[in-house]
Design a protein around this nucleic acid. Sequence first.
DNA 1: CGCAGGATGGGCT
DNA 2: GCCCATCCTGCGG
Length: 217
Amino acid sequence: MHTDIVCLHVYLLSGAIDVPIVNKKLSKEFYLREDTLAVARSLIGKLIVVPEGRRRVSAMIVETEAYLGETDKAAHSFGGRRTKRTEVMYAAGGTVYVFFVYGMYHQLNVVTGPADHPHAILLRAAEPVEGVNVIRERRGKMPDKNLTSGPGKLCIALGVDKRFNGESFRGKRIWLEDFREFADGDIITGPRVGIAYAEEFTEMPWRFWLKDNPFVS
DNA sequence: CGCAGGATGGGCT
DNA sequence: GCCCATCCTGCGG
């Protein structure tokens, strides 16, 4: 048996490095784990792939935030709230949750855990890897460091919008792959962003990011 | 570089 | 009618 290993020269600021593209979607089990904080941490270094026609467009996740469902005042599903918008959070892990905010921006989330366990992880920032020219075009005349350094920018860069809501992260339009592994010491935790309304949950260190990566928001 | 202010519309009270 | 898991621009230093 033989496997094609494609090596890529990784894009700019975080340093030049050749990395194998594994080209294999993360397993169903990856998404079904109930330890949402562990999943949020393990998403750092994974590749988000959103093909454009036959072309791969991808970015390495460098920042995530965990939203822990019914008991987390910052989560849309807090208190078991179940509406048209939040319904998708009750699906099984591996489902795409995209919502619209501030009248202009989309936010890409990974639903995690079993069905009726409405946790999700916000993908806040990533580093462009493949299809960088497609990404540059979508982002207009932005300097490279601003291409994907925030949750709204990431969605624009990858072409993600409400149409992706409810799809699978193991389908044909969007998926995640293994890409790079980082030691625990390279992953920093801190409070989540933009949740001042969440009272005692505001300062919970449920945001994870890759130390010294220039695309962290 | 930092910061203030505005854009803009869905979701929910 | 208010809030919001944000981003960009323009201005001052």
